[in-house]
Amino acid sequence: MSVSKGMGYLLGVLVLLPLSGCSSRSQVEPPKVVPQPTSLVLATPLQVSYQSELALARLGQMLGEMELTPEQRAELFYERAVVFDRVGLRSLARLDFNRALREKPDFAEAYNFIGVYLVQQQNYDEAYEAFDSALELAPDYDYAYLNRGIALYYGNRASLSVSDMKRFYDAQPEDPYRVLWLYLAERKLDEASAMSHLREHLRQHGDSAWNWDLVRLYSGTLTPTQLMASVVTGVKDNRELAERLCEAYFYLGKFELAKGNRKEAISYFKLALANNVYDFIEHRYALLELELMARKAAQPGGEVRREQDGKQPAI
């Protein structure tokens, strides 16, 4: 899902690669099989489009050559920042979001993006301030509640995270991604209660759309293999496949991490990154998850400690 409007979707060529050891007439032990995530699906990684390159050129020309009011300059800086963000140029995007705020200090959407970047850098207190500013300016800005809820989730402020995720969920309870993020937040407080709520939300609002299968995975009524079969069903082009895969692999990573399957989780998070869907939150936080796991592994005893998603120590 994108930072401001939705969640990712993905698809591609189904690649299931079982590994087998070679037989030998000598008594050498066969090579060890390296565990792989179930039923890998791959898409061609997204590339920077001609339209995005043209948009960046035109916005740069307008900003350099036109007589503009401060509000017009703010809007153009913001639009260019969104394009930079979409193609993965996040330092340039953040620079333009800050320029937009200098021109228009009451720009709620720019505060929202700045907050997301601060979360990715694990600057949680500054991120909270950015999201607070966005919500003071636009109290009904749904995605600022989501993004602040995610910041609180990674900042180990579970109760406050649940409050924001509940607000985000209540605005559109038929959205499976809102169900998932509310569950992830609630699970840090009470795993049994979170699962009960997840299953009730699925019962009330679930339908045949593929992304509800993400919820079914967490509810225990769908296997990872079945999920990947669902991901590829009805895909129209490579972009849709890449977007679906980015989402599916991220939530599979969170699913495996909660079970303590650290190696499988790492593989899934890396696969979520592989499609270059830079503007989906699943891409952003797959990278953060890998950074957090690497930090834990570097701590004494980190490799052997169970990676319980709902019981992470404060970072």
Rank of each mutant, 00 (worst) to 15 (best):
L54N: 14
V179N: 02
M1Y: 06
R178T: 00
N275L: 00
A286K: 09
P224K: 08
F255C: 01
L160T: 02
A185G: 07
E191L: 13
Y124R: 01
G234T: 14
V231H: 09
S24Q: 11
I315W: 06
D96Q: 10
G206T: 10
G260R: 11
P30R: 14
Q121L: 04
R295Y: 01
L11N: 11
R199T: 05
P139S: 05
R25W: 13
Y111K: 05
E103S: 07
Y278I: 01
E71P: 10
Q61P: 02
E53F: 05
V41W: 09
Y143S: 00
P139M: 06
E136P: 03
A194S: 12
K296N: 04
G88N: 12
A286F: 06
P35R: 06
R102Q: 13
V48H: 05
S196P: 03
S159Y: 07
Y278E: 03
V87E: 00
S133A: 12
G64K: 15
Q36E: 13
G8R: 15
V13F: 07
M293N: 07
A55Y: 12
Q47L: 09
M165G: 02
N98Q: 15
L202P: 13
Y143F: 14
V235E: 11
R25F: 06
Y143G: 00
E53V: 04
P300I: 04
R239D: 06
V215P: 03
N123W: 07
D213G: 15
Q121E: 15
Q122C: 03
A294N: 10
V277A: 09
R187L: 05
L189A: 11
G88H: 06
A108Y: 13
Q122A: 08
R99I: 00
S52C: 08
T223E: 13
Y128H: 09
D279I: 04
L54F: 13
E200D: 15
Y141D: 02
Y218H: 15
E291L: 07
L63M: 10
K236E: 08
D140K: 12
S24M: 02
R239G: 00
L182V: 01
L17M: 07
F269V: 01
Y278Q: 03
L182M: 06
